[in-house]
Design a protein around this nucleic acid. Sequence first.
DNA 1: ATCTTTAATCGTAATATTGCAATAAATAGA
DNA 2: TCTATTTATTGCAATATTACGATTAAAGAT
Lengths: 110, 110
Amino acid sequence: MGLTKNEIFTDVQNEMALFSKVLGHPARVAILQHLFKINRCVCGDLVNEIGLAQPTISQHLKELKQVGLIKGSIEGTSVCYCIDSEKWSEMKLIVSEFLNQDLSKGKECC
Amino acid sequence: MGLTKNEIFTDVQNEMALFSKVLGHPARVAILQHLFKINRCVCGDLVNEIGLAQPTISQHLKELKQVGLIKGSIEGTSVCYCIDSEKWSEMKLIVSEFLNQDLSKGKECC
DNA sequence: ATCTTTAATCGTAATATTGCAATAAATAGA
DNA sequence: TCTATTTATTGCAATATTACGATTAAAGAT
């Protein structure tokens, strides 16, 4: 065990979980916020900004890139990262739909 | 290591990550969806509905309860669970604010 | 009182995550 | 070419997560 049984869930459930998971670490939240503020930045900026070691930041960037929320392009010796707004919108749609579920009105339960 | 350095992040970042983390597993997503559809249900229902073992479901319920998204009340020999709509709204606010960040218009970056 | 039903807890195995030091790779500049 | 500079990768240790069988606990039914 120790691994999630994705087979038994719907695609939407798995996708919702996947996006949520990547947002489930404050460093990745901070990276995304910084990217929104600055629009584009290199790994070193984030190391200074956030205060985790360079390999750690690099790893978080990799995870964000893997789900597609950011993209990076080589720029001399450094790598410029930024939000992939297309993917961001896609996520927004899925997450919003989930968040905006309504209780079947009335019965307040327990 | 192996544990997140929460000290170096803001409260909002940590809270955002905490909520996201709990949504970061399809079983918990499925539980919440089912609760929204049915309004109230007992652990056994979820075991049948989702198809994970009872202790596993119980554990996921515990995590959802810990962050406050659901509440449970004893009802005879079973436990009735439902969404805590107050906490849900709180989460919605935090997550929406994060999702609705805008790119500083213009410069499309990399 | 005993049995049944239901859920929580305990214990454990497998795997994933977080973080960093050390190292590698790749480009720019001297 | 040699040296910085910058980021990615590797390897590792500590901890967390996922899942479930076995057991416990608590309330209802007989």
